[in-house]
């Protein structure tokens, strides 16, 4: 837990591009909210590897969103079921159903469909919002946090030692 918090602070306080951190979080949202062993998550993993996405942000986000997914399961089921049973979309789903790859994707499952639609829908808003928040944090809060008494105490703590040891490892 201490290491995780230290990692978060290190990522936020580093000079990594906010876009890379935000993208990592957004990819984590897709992988975390949708069933992990899905075909599309292999594609997400590929993107995480080849794009300059912040790995630490991705891994932290993955843990966070996986936990959230359990709470949101009923919502995903409702969304997915509504999408899959919408008569206007039936011809689309029927044609996808004939494809081996789409069957492998298991798109016809209410949970897969619901969580994928939900996370794709939130992808752009989360990207912009997290980008904005990280920039604001760095502009207005970072300096104040560094000078605060709590931070001074923190620097003297074991947590800071961990932070220091991790700072040697730079993100790409």
């Amino acid at each position: 837990m201490i290491k995780l918090l230290a990692k978060l602070l290190r990522v936020l306080n580093s000079e990594t591009d906010p876009g890379q951190i935000s993208l990592g979080l957004c990819f984590a949202m897709i992988a975390g909210l949708t069933p992990l062993l899905s075909l599309h998550n292999l594609f997400v993993l590929l993107l995480v590897f080849i794009l300059r996405v912040n790995f630490a942000a991705f891994l932290m986000g993955l843990g966070l969103f996986t936990g959230m997914a359990y709470l949101l399961d009923p919502l995903f089921h409702q969304i997915g079921l509504a999408m899959l049973t919408a008569s206007s979309l039936e011809s689309v789903w029927t044609s996808l159903y004939q494809s081996v790859w789409w069957r492998l994707e298991h798109f016809n499952n209410s949970m897969v469909m619901g969580s994928l639609v939900f996370s794709l829908g939130l992808f752009l808003p989360l990207l912009l919002l997290s980008n904005l928040l990280i920039r604001r944090y760095r502009q207005h809060i970072l300096a104040w946090v560094q000078k605060s008494k709590i931070m001074q105490m923190f620097k003297a703590s074991k947590l800071f030692e961990t932070y220091q040891s991790l700072s040697a490892w730079r993100s790409d």
Binding site: W93, Y97, N108, N109, M111
Partner: peptide, 25 residues
């Protein structure tokens, strides 16, 4: 299996969702 009448569903399982089946060629 899906039929002429439209898509068909299996019973939902917690955390597993339901599979909706469509007519196959």
């Amino acid at each position: 299996g899906g039929s002429e009448a439209g898509p068909e569903m299996q019973k939902p399982l917690r955390g597993k969702g339901v599979d909706v089946h469509f007519k196959e060629a």
